[in-house]
Design a protein around this nucleic acid. Structure first.
Lengths: 116, 116
DNA sequence: TGTCATGTGTACTACATAGTACACGATTTC
DNA sequence: GAAATCGTGTACTATGTAGTACACATGACA
């Protein structure tokens, strides 16, 4: 599923129950031209900037990290975390590349619970 | 330390013992114009592309992830790892943001040793 | 049946990215 | 002291990013 198709499918769903989720009105609320949002949803142009993706995610009630990932981007706060200690995080991420989801989850949970 | 100053300091050190580490010769080996490398080293232009940074790191014997981080970039393979499972890795990284180095290291080691 | 909102096509723009090409004066080397 | 090598200044370019502005045809609806 491309970025555009996903956004369109989500907005369409919202639109069915709330007429304020038209291309025009959503575009206005997130601060872009309707024709631009239309092109984005049909993958006629590349996904928008991180800031615009965030506003779109907020408006549609979707996870910003997920939308950013679909756009091939990484949240700038995550980039900052990594660039602070690049070698450490590079090694960790490469180790976790093929780890099952539950492994990553339990590592995160154990860190959060302070078991380290 | 900026990207440019760091590159210059490393290349200068190599140059002292090996005359083939001049701006001109390094530039030629990594496939860019000498004037461009000169500008990079004096921070007169933004750091080069990921591909060029990788060639430069290889040539200078420095860690590519470190040089990329100094350029404010993230290795594309790491970006791929994250965008495959954005929510999972986003949570993990935010948990690890303020963790001490040894915590991140021991997590990586335990994953590698299969203790999960 | 006229008006109103809808989605979209076309044309254009400003700024960033990632460099090249070439000339110049200074320094080194033979 | 001529030739080669050095670093750098200036000018230019192609492509990508992130959009705007406006017109148009279509369909809803009152």
């Amino acid at each position: 599923m491309t970025f555009g198709k996903f956004v369109r499918s989500v907005r369409d769903k919202r639109f069915k129950e709330d007429r304020s989720f038209s291309v025009r009105q959503v575009a206005q609320r997130i601060g872009v031209e309707p024709s631009y949002l239309s092109k984005i949803e049909r993958d006629q142009v590349a996904p928008p900037s991180e800031a615009t993706i965030r506003r779109l995610a907020g408006e549609l009630g979707e996870d910003a990290d997920l939308l950013l990932a679909m756009a091939g981007k990484i949240s700038s706060d995550l980039r900052n975390i990594i660039t602070q200690r690049p070698q450490l995080f590079a090694e960790l991420l490469r180790q976790l590349k093929d780890a099952p989801d539950h492994t990553i989850q339990s590592v995160a949970r154990e860190i959060r619970d302070g078991d380290w």
